[in-house]
Design a protein around this nucleic acid. Structure first.
Length: 290
DNA sequence: GTCCAGGGAATCA
DNA sequence: TGATTCCATGGA
């Protein structure tokens, strides 16, 4: 593949910090370089990004189109995060602390299929290992893109995973998630769950119900897919061990956090954060986990 | 050796 | 519905 490097500069960009965006737990394919820049891949784009204050410099291979358009879509540049943060800050002191901590967070527009598979892999797993598994799957079944002499690999499409066996997944270190990946790939290829239909359905509850029929997709994974993919539903509130912990510490204060009822957390989140629950969740998660 | 990780599915009351 | 248990794997 012939290298065709594109460049793009974004000046005076507010609510944008590479570290906050890439390390708040929403994505798994970005890595920090020694110089503090980040390199990663999405769709058929490989990118290295450097930030100096509010100026951001993008450089890489964009096989999906013009770098400005691709960056604008992926980094959700059309959305006013200042306005979102203003609303959250008014809620309470906890929001002021956590929003301040993660002030540079933006929720990426990640490919729906990749997000589904990535968060199925995330079940009962840790972030370094999730990243490793996704890299190995991409290297084994994705397409190679070379950038500055190094090889990067796209996330494989459903078609590219069509003939991969459960055994091969197991050999890549997926553990018990191997069957779930295989079954979900089949359901999507067979259109038992039609991703285009999900993309066009504005009813969040209906989309959530459909996602829940996929193997390996439970309530938490479904909410992550709704929030972190191009579906972009900010009213959902993914509850994992960290979110349960932080919600209990801040609001519920049950001595044994394992006894905290999920429905109680959901209701509390909806009452407090409303249609910005997903954003609130992400600031809280990032703040509590670091 | 033990515990834990951005949980889900199967089982049982 | 709600609670328990098992599920691979690797790092602390």
């Amino acid at each position: 593949m012939q290298e065709q490097i594109q460049r793009y500069e974004l000046k005076n960009q507010k609510s944008f910090k590479l570290k906050d965006i890439f390390e708040c737990g929403q994505c798994f394919r970005w890595n920090e370089e020694k110089d503090g820049s980040y390199t990663g891949i999405w769709k058929n784009n490989v990118m290295n990004i450097t930030q100096k204050g509010q100026d951001i410099f993008f450089e890489g291979i964009c096989l999906d189109g013009d770098i400005k358009d691709e960056v604008s879509k992926y980094f959700d540049l059309e959305r006013n995060y200042e306005e979102i943060k203003e609303k959250l800050l008014k809620i309470d002191e906890n929001m002021q602390i956590s929003v301040k901590y993660g002030e540079g967070i933006r929720i990426l527009n990640q490919d729906l299929w990749e997000t589904i598979i990535s968060f199925i892999i995330s079940a009962n797993n840790n972030i370094p290992r999730i990243k490793g598994i996704i890299e190995r799957i991409s290297k084994a079944y994705g397409k190679e893109i070379k950038y500055k002499g190094k090889s990067y690999y796209t996330f494989p499409s459903p078609e590219e995973l069509k003939d991969v066996t459960i055994k091969e997944y197991r050999e890549l270190g997926l553990g018990f998630r191997d069957v779930r990946l295989y079954e979900t790939m089949k359901m999507i290829l067979d259109k038992k769950v039609d991703l285009d239909e999900l993309r066009n359905n504005p009813n969040t509850l209906e989309v959530r119900e459909k996602l829940l029929t996929l193997s390996g997709v439970g309530p938490k994974v479904a909410d992550c897919i709704l929030l972190f993919s191009t579906l972009k539903r900010f009213e959902v509130f993914p509850i994992d061990v960290w979110v349960r912990r932080v919600m209990n510490d801040l609001y519920i204060k049950e001595p044994d956090e394992k006894k905290v009822n999920k429905k109680k957390i959901e209701k509390l989140a909806n009452d407090k954060f409303g249609d910005l629950a997903g954003m609130a969740q992400q600031y809280l998660f990032y703040w509590r986990r670091e």
